[in-house]
Nucleic acid binder design. Structure first.
Lengths: 188, 188, 188, 188
DNA sequence: TGTTAATCGAGACGGTACGTCTTGTCTTTCG
DNA sequence: CGAAAGACAAGACGTACCGTCTCGATTAACA
């Protein structure tokens, strides 16, 4: 038998409260208690859904959907990458920095959050770059063996900057990284 | 100054307790209370020295000293880098992963810890790579404009992996990153 | 009345579960939640029958029936009382102490449970003593005006002991109380 | 070594809050949370002192002191008892009924509260009656063997009434009980 | 040689959040 | 409609840390 189904309106309220609190006060100050209070949901209803703060974070991030920037196809790897890297850096630097820091903070705690985050947040965005690289490889612009390493050359420095030097994610830095990746894609 | 001087033995005890707790239980479970209890030091004496958990972490890491791997000078950028990257990855993958995650966790909290960590932990290690790159540039092996970007291509992916995929830091991954950096250093 | 009739089997299951829980864990730990779980009945079905914990307790006690000890008629007040008091004390001291404490606990909460309990549990047992006293009064063994006061002299100390000193309800204590009541029945 | 001593002002605040809440809302609604909030004391400070609700109750009752009615010595057992029983019944019927019910409620829970309550609340009051009975015994007014049983004949019915029929504790009931005890004290 | 001032341990203190539990109500599906 | 299942708001439970604050007892350096 089934019982009363969970109220989907509560999910929305919970996610919104969580996102608001992260944005306003930072992930460290987003407490389960605070989310419950803000969303007007009982703690029980909250814990029934998310036993850990990280689960709530991922679900909340999922609920807003991935605002995927369109994958460009200009015929030039450098141009394609430049647009995407610039967009990615801008995205994390501006509106979503609090969320990125939240993901980093939770991932660094060492639980299995990292694995979940990879599946739902990290990897999907990597795929966009893989598309671009695959097309460039077909055009002969990329001979470097491993796509994933090239993508790491982009996202690695980005998360590194999110951890240690927030302000580094400028447009010119995006251009530098792009240049480096393009060069790395075609070893001598 | 007047009054009883601080007991230096307490510093050692505090640092040791902090490091032990991070290693055993993770940074998230290293509490000020726990450090005080473990080291047999009063909370007052602890807070007199470190007003924040992050300060304690940095001081404790400093106290063990930087076990700097020797900077190689083989005459080949690829060889020099390969050794250093492999050593760096191994270091963070093995013994010190808990400490690296601790630094990442605290840095992601968004306070000014990140700046302090950069000064005391992050930058000093970058300088080692800068030496190698500088020598390679003199030999004509590097024409890429910005040394820091090249170093970011190494440490970025490393911290990225420490956050999201711990096991990626293999020797073969070190080789791939080295290849990519060498190629990026000499754009066509 | 319309609709599906209540399943009488549920009442039995509920009562049994309630009694079991009181006996095993004490009345304070007999929760509505626990009774529902133990009896396999939904909380709704439980609350539909008993709006309060006390109602459930009384119903459960009623369901097991009153194991009324036979009222003796030996021709001697002292002998009649001695048997009844001894039996009553033994009953509450041994098997049913948990239930007596449950009744006391609920009565002390100050709701109108006390009144209900008097009707269904307390007074019926008093009537047995009234019979004996009435017969003794006809024989001239009792001249004290108020039967109820004499009965209070028996049940008062018994409940007093159930509250504060459980072990006092021995056979010799029953004899002492009996002596006192007999004496009180015939003021000089 | 000793550490910071407990603040005695907090004890007073806690006791007062506890007594207020019992009087206002009943013992069942006197929660540890409520006492902490009302007294402005942290839950920690509260639990440091009293691990159980019953301990708090006894301490609070102790703190107000035993408002001992003066033990009369009129030369007549009946007169002495009448005054004391009347006073005792009035006391529990009027101002302190909520506290008496609280003691009964906790005692009925079956923990070792009962034993503690006997020591601090129940027995001290019995001693007053023992004095009177002892003097009467010296005057030859009491020949019944056991003082404690006579005292049970008073306090038993009183607590019995507090549990089940609050309004019974009238002056005329006090007189009836007194008569019965006097008679029981001098068996034919 | 005291005095003075900062240290030390121990631990109390007001807060805040934790995660669990129970209460009594309500919604769903099934029979 | 009754019943099982279980979601729900409310709110108390007892615990854990936070960072601050007394205590009384040690130390030095200064007077």
């Amino acid at each position: 038998m089934q019982g009363r189904p969970r109220d989907p309106a509560l999910d929305a309220a919970i996610h919104q409260a969580a996102l608001d609190l992260v944005a306003e006060r930072g992930y460290g100050r987003m407490t389960m208690e605070g989310v419950a209070a803000r969303s007007g949901v009982s703690k029980q209803a909250l814990y029934r859904r998310y036993s850990a703060k990280g689960d709530l974070l991922l679900a909340a991030l999922d609920s807003v959907g991935r605002e995927v920037f369109p994958v460009p196809d200009t015929g030039s790897l450098r141009e394609d990458l430049l647009r995407m890297v610039t967009a990615a850096f801008a995205l994390h630097r501006d509106s979503n920095s609090a969320f990125s820091q939240a993901v980093a903070a939770e991932a660094a705690q060492g639980s299995d959050f990292a694995r979940k985050a990879v599946d739902s947040v990290i990897n999907p965005r990597r795929e966009l770059f893989r598309e671009v690289i695959t097309r460039a490889r077909e055009r002969g612009e990329v001979t470097f063996a491993d796509d994933d390493v090239l993508i790491d050359l982009i996202y690695g420095p980005m998360w590194y900057a999110l951890l240690f030097d927030f302000d580094r994610l400028t447009e010119s830095y995006a251009a530098s990284i792009t240049d480096a990746v393009v060069a790395a894609g075609q070893p001598a």
